[in-house]
């Protein structure tokens, strides 16, 4: 295994290898910085699998998960990641916060800051909200999804899953299919996978395809059968039910007809890896036989999620913790 994207970045001592204070998106990250985070995460995958003795390197640090938009799996993943590293993890849900009482986002950010959090994980329904908060607080901020903009840890975990299964991201033909227009997962994955030199195709009906895809160095398709020809990885996105009742797509069964990843379609690409960020609409964008089949990496994605988030929490707090070479 000698993939070109697997540079020995982690051998470079100190913080120069990852000079960012926050992780607000994949945009702005250099390929070697992405690779560095993946390398770091790789260590945690092995540690987690061994049920290794807990590494409490974030002991005494407070991690606030501020989720302004509902989430189950991402929140859980960040909570487990923080706890495995020994951080004191506090979850703030918008439903039970003063946000509902009209407090502005900036006020909320300043409140979180005043509570002396050591790292803040934020999910918000508006694009750019996380960067806005990051500018106002003293501690590292991790983007857990902002509007349609970015979801960087999802892209990192997807890249890690691909790298582990396929040996490399570079040169892999990855098809991302579904609601590209409204998807932050698609944006972050496009940025991360193209940075790591994958050949990325995006596939959606034109009603759910954003313009200027060529400017993001991916190839757009409207025909799923064409898109998956010779694919190495097929990444299905969730399509919100409210977009399949005539607004963007006539019906969910019509979506399945044109874009559903069925066993018949998958039979054409028997070596391809199947991915889905979850939660799945089984029987719509992906059939159960495919989701649970041998080609599926879906549960592995969840596993990678914890490792990637552990790596991000560790790396971003290194300066505050005074890790040698990072302070």
């Amino acid at each position: 295994m000698a993939p070109s994207d697997h540079r020995p970045a982690s051998l470079i001592p100190g913080g120069a290898v990852f000079p960012h204070r926050h992780l607000t998106g994949i945009e702005g990250l250099q390929p070697h910085e992405i690779t560095f985070l993946l390398d770091e995460a790789e260590n945690w995958v092995e540690a987690n699998r061994r049920h290794a003795k807990p590494d409490k390197r974030l002991d005494g640090l407070t991690q606030i998960n501020a989720f302004f938009e509902n989430s189950t799996r991402t929140l859980l993943s960040f909570e487990i990641a923080g706890k495995r590293l020994g951080a004191d993890v506090v979850n703030m849900h918008a439903a039970q916060s003063s946000v509902k009482k009209g407090e502005t986002l900036i006020d909320t950010a300043q409140t979180l800051n005043a509570m002396r959090a050591d790292v803040i994980v934020i999910r918000h329904m508006s694009s750019g909200a996380v960067r806005l908060i990051a500018d106002k607080v003293d501690c590292p901020v991790l983007n857990a999804g902002d509007g349609r903009h970015e979801h960087p840890t999802q892209a990192l975990l997807d890249a890690l899953a691909i790298r582990r299964r396929r040996g490399s991201v570079a040169g892999q033909r990855v098809v991302i299919c579904g609601d590209i227009l409204h998807s932050r997962v698609a944006r972050s994955n496009i940025l991360a996978l193209t940075a790591l030199a994958a050949d990325v195709r995006v596939c959606a009906p034109s009603t759910l395809m954003p313009p200027a895809m060529d400017r993001m160095f991916v190839t757009p398709f409207t025909d799923f059968d064409q898109a998956i020809t010779d694919a190495d990885v097929v990444m299905m996105l969730r399509v919100q039910n409210e977009r399949m009742d005539g607004g963007y797509i006539p019906s969910s069964r019509e979506f399945r007809l044109r874009y559903g990843l069925t066993p018949e379609r998958l039979a054409r690409i028997p070596d391809a890896l199947v991915m889905h960020p979850g939660p799945m609409n089984r029987g719509v964008e992906i059939d159960s036989a495919v989701a649970d089949g041998a080609q599926s990496a879906i549960t592995e994605q969840v596993e990678m999620g914890v490792a990637v988030r552990m790596a991000c929490l560790d790396v971003l707090t290194r300066r505050a913790r005074g890790v040698e070479g990072w302070a």
């Binding site: 945009e27 694009s127 750019g128 903009h149 954003p210 200027a212 400017r215």
Partner: peptide
């Protein structure tokens, strides 16, 4: 306005 900037920023 629809275009590369709005696509990159994920803005409606």
């Amino acid at each position: 306005t629809e275009g590369e900037t709005a696509t990159r920023l994920g803005l409606p």
